[in-house]
């Protein structure tokens, strides 16, 4: 027992830094890799379930409803409609795009699932559900096995600025 009176107790601190940093390996898996490799060639590859005929974009390796392996990949032309969207207006750590910007679920023609990507070349307040969009690919030297091979989707048939986007 500390009998002798020592110096007064220190003033308690209220928090400690508790940082974690962890390095990982991401394994895309067989199905996802087919899709990502397609992106590096400007191709949107979809696959159909032989059981329920659902067409997946992006396609996994097997149907998550029937659990059967999907059929061989085939290319879609990239056009689709906006199924739903939101306008991101707030900043957050790690943000790489200047707000405000539009993120949408895009229902590609010929696919039964929706793919999430950015909507560009249009003012956020002009974006509508049901609007037809198409991918804007990055330059040849920037194409890679990543969603970043598509810069964003833009409306088809709508003239924005000086550039007409109708095919």
């Amino acid at each position: 027992m500390s009998a002798e009176p020592g110096p007064p107790l220190p003033q308690p601190i209220t928090s400690v830094k508790s940082p974690f940093r962890m390095d990982y390996t991401y394994v895309a898996g067989a199905g996802r890799s087919v899709f990502l490799r397609g992106l590096a060639e400007r191709k949107l590859l979809a696959r159909r379930c032989p059981g329920c005929s659902q067409v997946y974009l992006p396609p996994p390796e097997f149907c998550s409803r029937c659990l059967t392996e999907l059929e061989a990949p085939f290319e879609l032309d990239g056009r689709g409609t906006i199924a739903t969207f939101c306008v991101v207006s707030f900043p957050f750590p790690g943000q790489t795009i200047e707000a405000p910007y539009v993120v949408a679920h895009i229902h590609h023609h010929g696919a039964d699932t929706r793919l999430m990507h950015l909507i560009g070349d249009v003012a956020p307040d002009e974006v509508r559900i049901g609007m037809e969009v198409e991918p804007v690919w990055v330059g040849e030297d920037q194409l890679t096995t990543s969603m970043t091979s598509i810069r964003h989707y833009r409306p088809t048939g709508v003239a924005i600025g000086s550039e007409s986007t109708r095919a």
């Binding site: 390996t25 394994v27 895309a28 898996g29 067989a30 199905g31 996802r32 996994p60 390796e61 097997f62 998550s64 659990l67």
Partner: peptide, 16 residues
């Protein structure tokens, strides 16, 4: 180290 499958990919055959 399994470098072929995602989580679903290597679980599915075991569930089957």
């Amino acid at each position: 180290a399994n470098r072929r499958d995602d989580m679903a990919g290597f679980l599915l055959p075991v569930i089957r």
